[in-house]
Amino acid sequence: MAPKLQLAIYWAAACGGCDVAILDTDEKILNIAEAADIVLWPIAMDFKYEDLYKMGPESIDVCLYNGAVRTSEQEELAQALRVRSKYMIAFGACASWGGIPGLANLTNREDIFKTVYQETFTTINQEGIRPDVNFRAPEGELFLPRIYDRVWSLDQVVDVDYYVPGCPPTPETIWTAVEAIVTGNLPPKGSVIAGSRSQCDTCQREKTEKKIAQFKRPYEIIPDPNKCLLEQGLICCGPVTRDGCGHRCTSVNMPCRGCYGPSEKVSDQGAKLLNAIASIMDVKDEESARQLAATW
C-alpha cells in the first residue's frame, strides 16, 4: 500500500467557510481521511504549533492554506508550512486573491482601528485601548500577533504551487484537486484547479444583445430565470470570472460575485468587469453616462 498522504489544513484571515467546505465533501471526506494523515487542522483537531515545528522540510505532502495573510502569526505559519510542504495550495478566494478580508485594503490599519475601537456607536473605550502586541500581566509578559497595515494574498508572502478557487470552493472543485494530488496527475505549477473558460461561456441562460438602461440590485427585481442576469440590469461577474463552480449562483437566480477569480487572460478582474459593463451601458452622451453610472 502506498504511504498515506501527509496533509495540513490551515486557516488564516478566513471566515471558516473554507474549512466547512472540506467537511462538506460529505462521504468523500472519509475518502480523504483514508488517503491522508492529517498533521494539522486547527479548526477540527487539536494540534500544537510546536509539533509542526518539529517536522522536517518537505515532510508534509500538501498544505491547503485558506484565508488571507493579515497578521504576523499567519505569515509565520505560511512560511513554516511552506518549507515543510511539497505542495502549497492557496485554498479559496481569500488565500488566492485576498477575498473579503482584502476589502480592508480600501483603507488602512489606523482607520480600521479608529472605527472599531473608538468610533462605532456601541463602543465605549475612554482609555483609548488598542490591540497591542505585548501585555504585561502579573504572571508575566504576553505576546500577541501583530496586525499588518494591509492584507496579503498567500502568493504575496510565499511561493504557491496551485490555486483552488471559490468562496468557498465547491465540494466538486475540492474533490478534483484532491484527486489530482492523490493520483499525482497535476497540472503545471501555478495553475488554478477549476474550469478554464468564463462563466458566460458555459452559462445556460439565454443571451441576446446586451443593453442596460438601469442597474438593479438583486432585491429590487425577481429576475427571469431563463435570461442572462446582466441583461436584466443585475451586475453579474460572469464575463470575467472563471467557471468550474457549476454555476452555483446564476442557477438559483443570483448574479455571479466572481468568487472563482479572474478567468484565463484576465489580469484585473474588477477593471475588466468595469470595461464589460461600460460596453453595454445604453447611453450615448456624457450626462446620461454619469447618471446611469450613479445607479450602480
Binding site: 504576523s72 509565520e76 485594503n105 483603507t107 505585548n134 505576546f143 501583530r146 497595515d149 494591509r150
Partner: peptide, 21 residues
C-alpha cells in the same frame, strides 16, 4: 498608496514581528 503597502514599511514590520516572536 494610502494603503501603506510600501515594501520597506512592510519589511520593517515583518522584521519587528519576527524579533517579537
Amino acid at each position: 498608496k494610502k494603503l501603506g503597502d510600501k515594501l520597506d514599511v512592510v519589511m520593517h514590520e515583518v522584521a519587528q514581528s519576527a524579533r517579537e516572536a
